[in-house]
Design a protein around this nucleic acid. Structure first.
Length: 798
DNA sequence: AGCACGCCGACT
DNA sequence: GTCGGCGTGCTC
């Protein structure tokens, strides 16, 4: 057993296979599969993951492993298998699949150094570069244009190039000190200390009664300088203790007790508890209307899992990973919970990951990537708001957390709960087919009625002369809430509707010069910004096309709504939540707290306020423009609209005050708006399934999307055509290929984009052919600048 | 992906 | 004649 098969940290088609290395004698007992190692690869050193340990290999010129990066494997056998599966399912590189399972802190950091060997002296120019150091970063030499000289010196042997590999993250340590003096000598020693060494005296006295304990410097009250001199005198010793960064430091979570379940909840939880007890795998779809108490079912199921000595993973969409949500878990399970969300620093995430890895916690609550939590005895995986598209990763590996959860649950023989008030069509269809077990919560806790919903036809408003963005009904209701001192939530569906600049004379719209999209207007800096490539420029004051001064920002950004509202109701207190106001860390939390404390009458925001808000004083929810995303070129747009409207409506009247919802729209007759207003999921499901069947879309067909991009439109389009020609013969009659066509956003970052969509039911050969396409274009495309990417089961069709 | 090797044009 | 441009091919 002295050969290790290693996946190296080079994401490329040609290196996407194991490379064999000799395990040096001294590491034979140490190195195991799932560990990270540093290996020589060509002239440099790279990080790699040990796949397996073998007796022998075909390869003759084996190089030895430089050094292991871990003492114990960072990936379990299960996660290694999962990575293998991910690679095949999502057509990604093995290294990408391995990386996605680990915190960013464990990614390798590469640096190149040049070092003097000290054999001969250097030319004065190079010597001045080094000054009196023996090592300098490669970049320093490169910037000084000294690379040619260095190459020569490397040949001469006076300089060597060092390729260094380090782990990005560091463990945080704290300095601990312990008194080495016995209780009696401590008192004596204190007497002998020089009179002016007051600090040392105080420090030693801090140890009285706790002589044998390790204390932090803070606890003893001594400064680093004092510690240093006491160590020199041999009176105390020190060590570095590893510690966790605590993102919740200083916060206390009041413990809570399980609530008693309603009859409805009891019926739903019973089958879940049974599978937990039996240790069988099963996927439950928990379909519960907003406010029906899904979270309590999660909490009590987890309790059962913990009692059984197992662990649980809870996934929530990033935007609902708010303090309100996580607090419930912290209160119920105390220190048994780790929370993983994007607000944590790399170091904090690393610490949470280590707590999980060491089994110091029993429950993980986190966004998509938490599905890879390194537990080894999983008893339950929960995906809340199952329908959320954020569970699909849009970069490689393009995985869906739901699929990963089901894979892991099958491995550990445990249940999965998919919870939602508005399940995705895919999941609901599977539940109807009996692939998943459907559990229904059709009543709100305490039988509070669902809010009443008014649909307002904005065309009608316009016809009757109301040109504001508030219908009369909505405006009256807002005024009414102000009088009653109740709170209102106004929801603006921003997608595809952010403010842009348009000339009212010639119709010119300010577009990005590098992408085929209009740029977004940022009022505070009077700038235009492209959300796809990041390009920015000052907003024009006159039209660049016709010179007209009638150029202004259009669309209904949240800022505009706020302005108009303040014009109509100068007294009103508004909290605006959008990308502008929630940019800084913790601002999201702060704004919500302000609203909860009734420091504002109206909460105005985008997507991010659709979820998880649960404040008793909200009695009115207004949706300013329900149909803005209905017209996007996406077969899921009706489903998304329905889900969003249902979610938002659910924010009103969750407590003793009953709620009202006003939905403004230009297409009031659309079924997703009508049925969302009725909160009629079943009818929506039926209707939408009919549409999907007609269009040949999921869940009736699977999809695979091929994207091709190139600087030249012709190149992109001809490559796309060739790809289709190559794939077509391998597919059955039942498969449909749409395209190739130019992508809905035909150009991003000066690259023209073409795509084609494959619709299929069962194509055993498809993944093989797609892999071949990728391989072919990885080789060829590198030289001519063509980029090909494939998304199996895509969510983003743009 | 990086990096070296290798084969052709513009310079001391 | 050399320096250095970037096409090609390899990395256990």
């Amino acid at each position: 057993m002295n050969v290790a098969s290693v996946i190296v940290d080079v994401a490329a088609m040609q290196t996407d296979r194991p490379f064999d290395y000799e395990i040096p004698e001294r590491w034979r007992e140490v190195i195991q599969p799932g560990m990270r190692v540093i290996v020589p690869f060509g002239p440099r050193h790279v990080q790699g993951f040990v796949l397996e340990i073998k007796e022998d290999t075909e390869i003759r010129k084996l190089k030895p492993i430089v050094e292991p990066m871990d003492i114990v494997p960072v990936l379990s056998e299960e996660l290694m298998k999962l990575a293998q599966w991910l690679t095949i399912e999502s057509l990604c590189f093995k290294i990408s699949a391995l990386h996605v399972m680990l915190p960013a802190a464990m990614k390798a950091k590469y640096s190149k150094l040049i070092r003097l060997t000290g054999e001969k002296s250097l030319s004065p120019e190079l010597a001045s570069l080094f000054e009196d150091q023996t090592e300098i970063p490669w970049e320093v030499a490169s910037e000084a244009d000294a690379l040619t000289d260095i190459r020569k010196e490397v040949k001469n042997g006076t300089i060597e190039v060092i390729y260094s590999v380090k782990s990005k993250g560091r463990t945080k340590t704290v300095r601990m000190v312990k008194c080495l003096l016995s209780e009696e000598t401590l008192a004596e020693t204190v007497e002998t200390i020089a009179k002016n060494a007051v600090k040392q005296k105080e420090a030693l006295l801090a140890f009285s009664g706790r002589r044998g304990d390790w204390l932090t410097l803070k606890e003893t009250g001594m400064s680093p300088a004092t510690a240093k001199s006491l160590i020199r005198k041999g009176w105390i010793e020190e060590k570095q203790e590893e510690m966790y960064r605590d993102p919740h430091s200083g916060r206390h979570f009041e413990p809570d007790k399980p609530l008693s379940l309603t009859e409805n909840q009891q019926e739903a939880i019973a089958p879940i508890l049974a599978t937990i007890t039996d240790g069988t795998t099963e996927t439950f779809l928990l379909h519960g209307v907003t406010g029906s108490g899904k979270t309590e079912i999660y909490l009590q199921s987890i309790s059962r899992v913990i009692e059984k000595g197992q662990e649980a993973i809870v996934l929530v969409p990033e935007i609902s990973l708010t303090p309100q949500m996580t607090e419930r878990f912290k209160r119920r399970f105390g220190n048994d919970v780790a929370v993983l969300h994007s607000g944590l620093s790399i170091g904090e995430k690393y610490d949470e990951w280590r707590k999980i890895s060491r089994k110091e916690v029993k429950v993980v609550v986190g966004a998509r990537s938490a599905v890879f939590a390194p537990f080894e005895n999983i008893g339950l995986i929960i995906i809340d708001e199952e329908h959320e598209t954020s569970y699909k990763q849009e970069e490689n590996p393009r995985y869906h957390a739901r699929d990963v959860a089901i894979w892991r649950a099958a491995y550990y023989k445990c249940p999965v709960i998919l919870g939602s008030a508005t399940p995705s069509l895919e999941s609901f269809a599977r539940a109807k087919k009996g692939v998943y077990t459907l559990l229904t919560l059709d009543r709100r806790v305490n039988d509070r009625p669902l809010p009443s919903v008014d649909i307002i036809d904005m065309r009608e408003e316009l016809r009757e002369g109301n040109r504001s963005m508030f219908s009369r009904t909505l405006f009256d209701k807002i005024k009414d809430r102000l009088e009653k001192e109740e709170q209102t939530v106004l929801f603006l569906n921003k997608r595809g509707y952010s403010s842009f600049i348009m000339c009212r004379d010639c119709g010119y719209v300010a577009g990005c010069p590098h992408c085929d999209v209009s740029m977004t207007y940022h009022r505070h800096r009077h700038q235009l910004k492209c959300h796809y490539c990041g390009y920015e420029e000052p907003a024009p004051n006159i039209c660049p096309e016709c010179g007209s001064e009638h150029i202004r920002h259009f669309g209904t950004g949240t800022q505009k709504v706020e302005e108009e509202l303040l014009k109509l109701l100068p007294e009103v207190r508004i909290i605006r939540m959008d990308v502008d106001t929630t940019g800084t860390k913790g601002s999201h939390e702060r704004l919500l707290r302000q609203f909860a404390n009734k420091e504002a009458d109206i909460l105005l925001g985008t997507q991010m306020i659709a979820k998880g808000l649960d404040f008793p004083n909200i009695t009115l929810v207004g949706v300013l423009s329900a149909d803005t995303m209905l017209h996007l070129p996406d077969f899921r747009s009706s489903e998304k609209t329905f889900q969003l409207l249902t979610q938002v409506s659910g924010r009103a009247g969750r407590h003793h005050l009953s709620g009202e919802v006003v939905v403004q729209t230009y297409t009031p007759e659309h079924y997703s708006i009508q049925l969302a207003a009725e909160q009629n999921y079943e009818s929506f499901y039926q209707k939408e399934m009919m549409m999907r069947n007609m269009g040949g879309y999921p869940p009736f067909y699977y999809l695979a999307l091929i994207n091709v991009s190139h600087k030249e439109a012709i190149e992109a389009s001809s490559a796309a055509n060739k790809i289709v020609a190559k794939i077509k013969p391998s597919l059955s009659q039942a498969a449909v290929i749409l395209g190739p066509v130019a992508s809905p956003i035909a150009r991003i970052n000066d690259r023209y984009r073409w795509q084609c969509l494959i619709k299929y039911k069962r194509e055993p050969k498809l993944t093989v052919v797609l892999k071949e396409v990728l391989e072919h274009y990885a080789k060829q495309g590198k030289s001519n600048g063509l980029l090909v990417s494939i998304d199996v089961h895509p969510y983003m069709l743009m």
